[in-house]
Amino acid sequence: MTTPDHDGPLAEQLLRLTRRVHRIQKRHLEQRDLGITPAQSRLLRTLAHFSDPPRMADLAESLEVVPRAVTTLVDGLEASGKVRRVPDPANRRVIRIELTDDGRKALRELRSARRAAAEEILAPLTDGQREVLGELLDTLVGDMPERGRRC
């Protein structure tokens, strides 16, 4: 005897919404012609959360990826002038990653693109529905670090 799968359709809706969000954000990024991939965008946003330039290992941990993946992303962003590698003042063997002025400008553009994508995605919802959705999402992502939660 099989039991009904009550959560299956909901899980499928969440996955479809996630794919839609990624598609719309990617389109908004491409319209701005920043030459930044979604993964590079995520690294720049993560980098901006650090008060001091982080090590590659710190970025890998925050992004929950292997360090090699961060190296590849940093290589691309460094080549385009968005980040730079700098020696740690306390230990010159340690390399830290910092945003450049071009990186900060790109980050502002990325934020604008994300806001435009969010407006497009949330357009069918009333203010009340948005508030409820925000509360539900806070509940679902409650185990995330505070910097990842909405304000």
Results as ranks from 00 to 15, higher is better:
residue 70 V to E: 06
residue 53 P to C: 05
residue 40 Q to A: 11
residue 65 V to G: 02
residue 33 D to E: 14
residue 46 T to N: 02
residue 82 K to A: 12
residue 35 G to R: 09
residue 49 H to K: 14
residue 63 L to V: 08
residue 57 A to F: 06
residue 38 P to G: 12
residue 73 L to Y: 06
residue 33 D to C: 10
residue 40 Q to T: 06
residue 85 R to Q: 09
residue 66 V to Q: 15
residue 24 I to V: 14
residue 56 M to D: 04
residue 54 P to F: 02
residue 43 L to Q: 03
residue 72 T to L: 14
residue 54 P to R: 03
residue 74 V to W: 01
residue 32 R to Y: 07
residue 52 D to V: 11
residue 67 P to K: 07
residue 38 P to N: 07
residue 28 H to G: 00
residue 71 T to C: 00
residue 63 L to T: 05
residue 81 G to H: 09
residue 24 I to H: 02
residue 45 R to Q: 15
residue 67 P to M: 11
residue 61 E to S: 13
residue 72 T to Y: 13
residue 85 R to E: 11
residue 52 D to H: 13
residue 80 S to F: 04
residue 71 T to I: 07
residue 76 G to A: 11
residue 58 D to S: 10
residue 58 D to N: 08
residue 61 E to H: 13
residue 68 R to H: 14
residue 84 R to F: 01
residue 61 E to G: 04
residue 82 K to R: 15
residue 45 R to T: 13
residue 83 V to Y: 01
residue 79 A to F: 04
residue 65 V to Y: 11
residue 70 V to N: 02
residue 34 L to G: 03
residue 37 T to S: 15
residue 68 R to T: 14
residue 69 A to H: 12
residue 23 R to S: 12
residue 83 V to T: 14
residue 32 R to T: 03
residue 35 G to T: 08
residue 25 Q to Y: 08
residue 82 K to V: 08
residue 61 E to K: 12
residue 62 S to H: 07
residue 29 L to W: 09
residue 71 T to V: 10
residue 61 E to P: 00
residue 78 E to A: 13
residue 77 L to A: 09
residue 49 H to Q: 13
residue 53 P to K: 02
residue 29 L to V: 08
residue 44 L to Q: 05
residue 29 L to K: 00
residue 47 L to W: 06
residue 71 T to E: 10
residue 74 V to Y: 03
residue 50 F to L: 05
residue 70 V to T: 09
residue 45 R to N: 11
residue 37 T to Y: 02
residue 54 P to D: 03
residue 66 V to K: 15
residue 79 A to V: 05
residue 51 S to H: 12
residue 52 D to W: 07
residue 73 L to H: 05
residue 39 A to W: 01
